[in-house]
Amino acid sequence: MSPVRTLVTGAVVLAALLLQVVVAPHVAWHGVVPDLVLLVVVAVALARGPQPAMVLGFCAGLLVDLAPPAEHVAGRWAFALVVVGYLAGRLRPDVAPTALSTVATVAGCSFVGASLVALSGLLLGDPAGVGTGELMLAVLASVVWDVALTPLVLPPLLALLRRLEPGPA
């Protein structure tokens, strides 16, 4: 990865995190906000394959885990986003880039990511005493959010990533 690409990708992740933490809560549904960082990881996976996406997923997830006001056990989002990067990257070569397939990929990845975060919380007993019903609701709500935002977020992101791509060797 060239330094410019790394820098731009890092900036995009940071911007996504800031939007997610500062702006999104103003439009949140019962406190559930869209996982913009997850969308960035999916976009990178679609553009560059699983390898860079997994690395990015780890770094971005760690950032989400550590940036204020995160207070949960660190590593949960990192774990989930690595899996998301892997999955989205694996799905990539098999689908034609149509709107429907991209949205389906996002929906699947968002479901897996949100579920992993929720399940790891349940396993670690992170916030104790959260019901499974609430968990399911939060997971579903975040999937709906991510799918709804896909048409707005993914095309510009993919265009940006395409631009950063070096010419075919």
Binding site: Q51, F79, V82, V83, P155
Partner: peptide, 28 residues
């Protein structure tokens, strides 16, 4: 509009996946 660019997808590396997941688990 939805295309992801011409970069050929590098083959998904299981070992990288395992390494990163272990790293996340270590952080936890």
């Amino acid at each position: 509009r939805w295309s992801a660019g011409p970069a050929p997808a590098a083959p998904a590396s299981r070992s990288l996946l395992a390494a990163l997941l272990l790293a996340a688990a270590t952080v936890t």
